[in-house]
Design a protein around this nucleic acid. Structure first.
Lengths: 140, 140
DNA sequence: ACACTATAGTTGTATGTACAAACAACAATT
DNA sequence: AATTGTTGTTTGTACATACAACTATAGTGT
């Protein structure tokens, strides 16, 4: 196993890319005061006030327990609130949550700009498409 | 922000793919009793007994503190031992560590087979190359 | 109305990984 | 030889995320 063979392992390269781009995303979202994933969650809530946690889990491809924790955090930060209704939790933005939306969109756009500038816009899009496709195929 | 726009975000798709393929890798490495990353670490040690932790960090693209912890685990499991020499730690396989090598290689091959069968071998390789390239470009 | 199953969410716990600060050993410079 | 800077490793702490087990509510068939 000569060392550089690692580069030929999808597990490896994807994980490295994940670490790198996560760092970029954290950078872009830093001004908003929340992490990228929390930011996406917040945007989804703003986009559809009253969305349930299972819907969020589905959109974000994350487990319900993770969503519970993320929503907890948004609530603690005063950006969202839970309206429990029967067995369902509907998540609504607070005023602060609504206000932060522009900033989040900007952060997101910045992130896109940043990696597109480095990778090339078309290449970035192609890679995004390819990873999306592969994730879908492998997830079964 | 219509929901499915998330699919157009590299941060998102890569993270999802990372979760999915990590799960596959854990599956493949389960028979070995250690996790994929520990497996790669072990293979590197077998490949070059006496390798230092910084070398390992470099190969694996991980931080030294992470390597410390991973090596700790291999040591606890009796697969490797540290020979501290001055400020450097040289990592050597134990007998058990040497013995596990075949199994690790098999696990790795299985992983490759598994995702190649689903993605198509050429497509898998292309994706691997693309992610490797992108990670390199973005990491600066 | 009652028992059974399915669905939504929560909680405890574990893993992988990072960063920052500390520490230890070595190197270079005065 | 003492000082200062550099390099390799470790430790404390933190975060994202998952799984398994649990609770609570809803729906269904008898």
């Amino acid at each position: 196993m000569p060392e550089k063979y690692l580069e030929n392992c999808l597990y490896f390269t994807v994980n490295k890319l994940s670490r790198v781009i996560t760092k970029m995303a954290e950078e872009s979202f830093r001004p908003t005061g929340i992490s990228p994933t929390h930011g996406f969650l917040m945007m989804l809530v703003n986009n559809k006030p009253g969305i349930t946690q299972s819907e969020l889990a589905e959109e974000l491809h994350m487990t319900p327990s993770t969503i519970t924790r993320f929503v907890d955090k948004l609530v603690v930060k005063g950006l969202a609130e839970r309206k429990v209704q029967g067995k369902m939790s509907h998540i609504h933005p607070t005023e602060a949550g609504t206000e932060i939306q522009r900033e989040l969109e900007k952060a997101w756009k910045d992130l896109f700009r940043n990696y597109s500038d480095i990778l090339g816009e078309e290449e970035g899009k192609a890679l995004t498409k390819a990873t999306h496709l592969a994730a879908g195929q492998l997830d079964s």
